[in-house]
């Protein structure tokens, strides 16, 4: 990545006020709700609110499922990104387009789609039930599957971008030195794309942590089993808005922490 030289503001003239006004409107649309959250948060009772056992359960479930999801995304997503970035095959464009569908699909629809496949009379679920007696929907496994469905595209796109921006001729260098394609993948391709892979994994983890629509549809809202933090916020908000605010604040803090971590990664990636 090349950084552009900073344009001298005085040389190119003052920013047009129309643009500035609209930009400020946009910024306030994003920041005002967050400000509201901060102002209305029950700061005095915050620690007791967050120490409720069912909140801690939801937190634990969220962290565990999001981490498993991020891991699954890494294991299967990096090879998919590599395939899209480095291997020529027919239908590559189509596959790339399909992979990005969950990015724009309403998560609820994703949940419904997962049900059509994995419910007890779904395409795979029926067979799975007959063969092993296992049903997936409304289990913790379903939570992970729903999260993976929405988070995987983030990782794939991030890693594919990293692979595309790293010079493919390093693969050729490795080949002329006798390295097999597999060895090259592990020892050259992956290390060179590492910053993109790490930021992709963090993005996927954050997306999984915030997942609501697909989870509530495919996994339900069962405390201790499928009730992750966002589901807990939604459930609590109807009975105890103050507690919901507290949990929301927790999620906001995690998001900000993720952004900070990513920024660090990006910077270290550029400095290399």
């Amino acid at each position: 990545m090349r950084t552009h030289e900073r344009v001298d503001g005085a040389a190119t003239g003052r920013a047009p006020w129309v643009l500035v006004v609209f930009a400020l409107v946009a910024a306030s649309m994003l920041l005002l709700p967050l400000l509201g959250l901060l102002l209305r948060a029950p700061w005095s009772t915050l620690t007791t609110q967050l120490r409720e056992p069912d909140v801690l359960d939801a937190l634990r479930l969220s962290v565990v499922t999001a981490s498993i999801t991020a891991l699954i995304c890494l294991v299967v997503g990096v090879p998919l990104a590599w395939l899209l970035a480095r291997v020529d095959f027919t239908g590559r464009q189509l596959l790339r387009a399909l992979v990005t569908v969950p990015l724009v699909l309403p998560p609820v629809v994703g949940g419904v789609a997962l049900l059509t496949v994995f419910s007890r009379n779904g395409l795979v679920g029926q067979w799975l039930d007959d063969a092993t007696g296992i049903t997936i929907p409304f289990t913790t496994t379903a939570v992970v599957m729903a999260q993976t469905f929405v988070a995987l595209p983030f990782l794939v796109l991030s890693v594919e971008g990293a692979l595309r921006s790293s010079d493919p001729r390093f693969d050729e260098v490795a080949a002329t030195f006798g390295a097999s394609r597999q060895a090259t993948f592990w020892q050259v391709t992956i290390p060179l794309a590492a910053p993109g892979i790490i930021s992709g994994a963090v993005l996927a983890w954050a997306r999984a942590l915030g997942e609501f629509g697909a989870t509530v549809t495919f996994a339900g809202n069962v405390p201790g089993v499928t009730q992750t933090l966002p589901l807990k916020v939604y459930r609590t908000f109807q009975s105890d808005p103050e507690a919901a605010l507290a949990i929301s604040l927790l999620l906001l803090a995690v998001s900000v922490a993720v952004l900070a971590a990513l920024r660090e990664r990006w910077l270290s990636g550029l400095a290399r």
Binding site: A175, F177, A179, L192
Partner: peptide, 30 residues
């Protein structure tokens, strides 16, 4: 991979994530 060729590219293309020793050791190792 199977040709016994040593190639030097115009823009060097040393592996940025390996030190000089490991760059040179890359070929013999593989």
């Amino acid at each position: 991979q199977e040709r016994r060729v040593g190639m030097v590219f115009q823009d060097r293309l040393l592996f940025p994530h390996l030190n000089v020793l490991d760059n040179v050791a890359f070929g013999p190792h593989h």
